[in-house]
Amino acid sequence: MNDQLYQERIVALAKAKTGAGKLAAPTKSARRDNPLCGDRVTIDVRLDEGGRIAELAHQVRGCLLCQASASALASVAVGSKAADIERLRLDAERAVGREEGEAREPFSAFAPVKAHKSRQDCVLLPFEALKEALS
């Protein structure tokens, strides 16, 4: 049996559910759907006066990869501006093999997704939602 995709780190990130839920008073929210698989991510952010993310919460109706990615994103996004999020996204894209270079923590956990092209968008969907929320 070849069970390389669901490695412990990805499962642990998903189960940690970091940032899962809603914000009581978000500055902005955005929802993104993946029409191919039906995954849906809603992201709430509260921004501080400088435009940095003060709080982030996500609701994921999607697969384990999408949940793990949202959880990883929530664990590092506080204090970031839109440009910082783009750098985090680059890490995720590097992890899944869409960009050259080495991915940093926590997104390096997604390296097993490189071999599963049809699942890479699952990892990137939370970034799409956050980008829209910050736009």
Binding site: L5, C37, G62, C63, C66, R119
Partner: peptide, 14 residues
């Protein structure tokens, strides 16, 4: 508690 795509992906490995 398990998304259908994760079930299908696991089944593919079998």
């Amino acid at each position: 508690g398990v998304h259908p795509h994760d079930v299908a992906q696991t089944l593919d490995s079998f």
